[in-house]
Design a protein around this nucleic acid. Sequence first.
DNA 1: CCATGCAGTTAACAACTGTTCTCTGGAATT
DNA 2: AATTCCAGAGAACAGTTGTTAACTGCATGG
Lengths: 212, 212
Amino acid sequence: MSHTLGIRQAQKQKTRQALLDAALGLLEEQSLSSLGLREVTRAVGVAPTAFYRHFRSTADLGVALVEEALGSLHPMIRTTVSGTGDPEERVARAIELIARHVDGYPAHVRFIARERHGGVQPVREAIRDQLSRFAREVKDELAKDPESEGWTEDDLLMLAHLYVDQMLITASLFLEALEGPEEGREERKREVARVAARQMRLIGLGRHHWLD
Amino acid sequence: MSHTLGIRQAQKQKTRQALLDAALGLLEEQSLSSLGLREVTRAVGVAPTAFYRHFRSTADLGVALVEEALGSLHPMIRTTVSGTGDPEERVARAIELIARHVDGYPAHVRFIARERHGGVQPVREAIRDQLSRFAREVKDELAKDPESEGWTEDDLLMLAHLYVDQMLITASLFLEALEGPEEGREERKREVARVAARQMRLIGLGRHHWLD
DNA sequence: CCATGCAGTTAACAACTGTTCTCTGGAATT
DNA sequence: AATTCCAGAGAACAGTTGTTAACTGCATGG
């Protein structure tokens, strides 16, 4: 179904991706609101004016980065929440998945955590929308669970938001563990996983007794 | 005990405070990493070089803002967690307190939420330290509760962190509710309070059944 | 009362920013 | 084969930035 792009469009997308990659790199030590367009083009090796062929502004680029960072994550979320096995094992599996994602895409995770409450409104909104989508998807998945019998839609959604926020906090903690020196990094990661697992377990307990 | 400052020191502190206030205002629509020193001095009405008499850099000013925003909050935290009454009422009281704080100091709350994962390392660290202090204080307060009998220190601390993070999320949501148009603002705030209360209640349930 | 200290000023610097306009070379279309 | 299109280059713009140096005037301490 995918129509092969012409040489022209292919080259354009390549530069566009290079701009996104360079920006993501530069954003490891600053916020989007201080990211300059010239800074990005310099890092890529193109003229400043080339930027305008792809984005209206750095805020616009930021919105594109949100799509890149979160857009492809929806299938993963679904499979994380659902799945079989005893609760303890499911929690461990979910946290392991988060840890792997942070390991694989640390810059994306950092970007989302940073700009979720950052200084650029359109980007904040884009992230909020994506996270709301996540919450709704988690809710739908929770609804299938036999444990959710008797739950209102409203209560399921509030639990889903709790889970999503908790995932983000955990991801951010894994990132911090990654940031320090190599020495003891694995241990720091294990400690984060340990605490996160117990928090998830406690939330799971609250869920179990919700209808009492 | 407080020694009356000389005219000189008093005037200095006054400009210093003016710089902090102006910065906090400017930070409502951008992040600290893009805040310029000239921008701040211009807003206050002093020469750019005057800035250096008070702060080494905008990052340094940011650290001072963390102290201002969170330093005076410790007594409040303690009384929020402790206190008597049935659980339902305590939850409602805690959320009411958060709502009031956000109403009274929206710029401070925004600053903390924004810079907690922001682009300026020393500021992130300062916030992390303060929040860790909060968590330890909450833990100490939880330890006094009869419900905490049989809990390990470790488990109490993980619960405390859960509470602190939850408070921050709730505060940030109240802030969002405040940001839109006047129309329906009260309703948005009530909705935030409603969801937050149920999440706190669920966590409280998990806490109650932790030792099962 | 006089000398010192120091908060804030003034002026100047090189470097940087976003944005506009004009141009070019090669892919795409006819 | 001739024409159109368009991603990217180049140069120039006015305005901004952080930092330095030398200054001024006034509160302070001897």
